[in-house]
C-alpha cells in the first residue's frame, strides 16, 4: 500500500532533521550556553543538509558527480564529513585548552610560591 507521501518521505525526514538541528543550535546559542565560535560548523552542516534535502536536483547532480549511485546516501556522506570536521576541530581546541591550563597552573604554582615566601619574609 503506497501512499502519495511515500515519494517524499525521505525528503521530509531529512528536512525535519536539518531543521531540528538548526533550530536547536540557534536556540542554544541564544540561551548563551553555546559559543558562536563552536556553532558555526554545526550551522554549516545543518544548512547544507537542509538545502540538499529540499532541492532534490542538486542532490542528484552532486551524487552523480562524485559517483554515488543512490543520491539520498549522499546525505549520509555529507553529514559524516561534517562530523569528522567538527570532531577534529574539537581535538584542536582541546589541545590548545590543555596547553593553556598547563601554562595557567604553572603560573599559579610560581606565584603562590612567591607570595608565600614574601609572607614568610615579612613575618621574620
Amino acid at each position: 500500500m503506497f501512499h502519495y507521501y511515500d515519494k517524499y518521505l525521505l525528503e521530509i525526514v531529512a528536512l525535519s532533521l536539518a531543521v531540528l538541528l538548526i533550530a536547536f543550535v540557534i536556540g542554544t546559542v541564544r540561551r548563551t550556553s553555546l559559543n558562536i565560535r563552536y556553532a558555526i560548523l554545526w550551522l554549516g552542516a545543518g544548512g547544507v543538509l537542509l538545502v540538499l534535502s529540499v532541492y532534490r536536483p542538486l542532490l542528484d547532480y552532486i551524487a552523480a558527480a562524485v559517483g554515488v549511485r543512490y543520491p539520498p546516501s549522499l546525505l549520509f556522506l555529507v553529514a559524516f564529513v561534517f562530523l569528522l570536521m567538527i570532531v577534529l576541530h574539537y581535538s584542536l581546541v582541546l589541545s590548545s585548552h590543555r596547553d593553556s591550563i598547563r601554562r595557567l597552573s604553572q603560573s599559579v604554582a610560581l606565584l603562590e610560591h612567591q607570595l608565600k615566601s614574601q609572607e614568610k619574609r615579612q613575618r621574620e
Partner: peptide, 18 residues
C-alpha cells in the same frame, strides 16, 4: 624543600618544566 604546587595534575613533564 621549597614546594611549587600545581593546582591540578598536569603530568610529570609539566612538573619538570615548572
Amino acid at each position: 624543600a621549597d614546594v611549587l604546587r600545581h593546582p591540578c595534575n598536569l603530568g610529570i613533564g609539566a612538573a619538570v618544566q615548572t
